[in-house]
Design a protein around this nucleic acid. Structure first.
Lengths: 118, 118
DNA sequence: TCTAGTCACTTTCAAATTAAAAGTTATGAG
DNA sequence: CTCATAACTTTTAATTTGAAAGTGACTAGA
């Protein structure tokens, strides 16, 4: 017994950065979370964002975020049933990550400009 | 003339989060930057990190980080020539992004524990 | 000189992921 | 019926990733 089998989500190492990237280290996940932060709630609204996330990727990412309890899904109407996604406290805690990225992007990437309020 | 052609690095939209993710939105890039923050400098040191980045991916990411002037490469010896990578000011400015990820990971991912100093 | 070893990559190729587009399901409106 | 909408799912091709082996420039040792 050499590898002590990392608990839970930590797939590669116990480093919190590696663990975080195992969940949201890709091109799309944090954009969905950004959308939730600015008040978007539905599948259609996420799809309508200017970056144009592919539909299958969106479905996959929402599923992962649900599994990790970063977002919640509740029906906002019956017949036909339609869903609203919202951030959990765990998801809202990602605000600082987004904020740091906004700051870095605005300071260092020419042409980037904040759309996010706050 | 409908699409005003986004300047420079902004591939998908002018949102600073999207622009930032265009550069470092993947599973490995921020781990290399983490390594640089803790003082690792050489290709071999990056490869030796516990997550085990594949060699071709490491080469690709270092190239991208050089292109974006997030890291610099300088020979630290001749005959045979060997290189040291270091963060530029632009790269060091990513400290807040890493810090936010460490905080979130430690608070929300069971089993994750900081290895990074400060 | 021959052999082994180190470092910093590069190449190869199979497997996994992503992207684009079209299709599905449930339902209401006309 | 037929059309429209929201929320997905499926299909298929293209791209990216990962694992492993290979390369080039040397150095040190037998």
């Amino acid at each position: 017994m050499s590898k002590p089998s990392l608990p839970h989500s930590c797939k590669r190492s116990p480093c919190p950065i590696a663990c975080t990237l195992d969940i949201l280290g890709d091109k799309w996940t944090l954009l969905v979370i950004r959308d939730l932060f600015v008040g978007k709630k539905t599948y259609g609204e996420f799809q309508a964002s200017p970056e144009g996330i592919p539909s299958n990727i969106l479905a996959d990412r929402l599923k992962r975020l649900l599994e990790h309890e970063i977002v919640e899904k509740t029906p906002y109407q019956q017949r036909p049933v339609r869903y609203a996604y919202t951030l959990t406290p765990k998801g809202r805690a990602l605000g600082n990550v987004l904020k740091a990225m906004v700051q870095w992007g605005e300071a260092h990437i020419p042409g980037s400009q904040a759309l996010m309020k706050r």
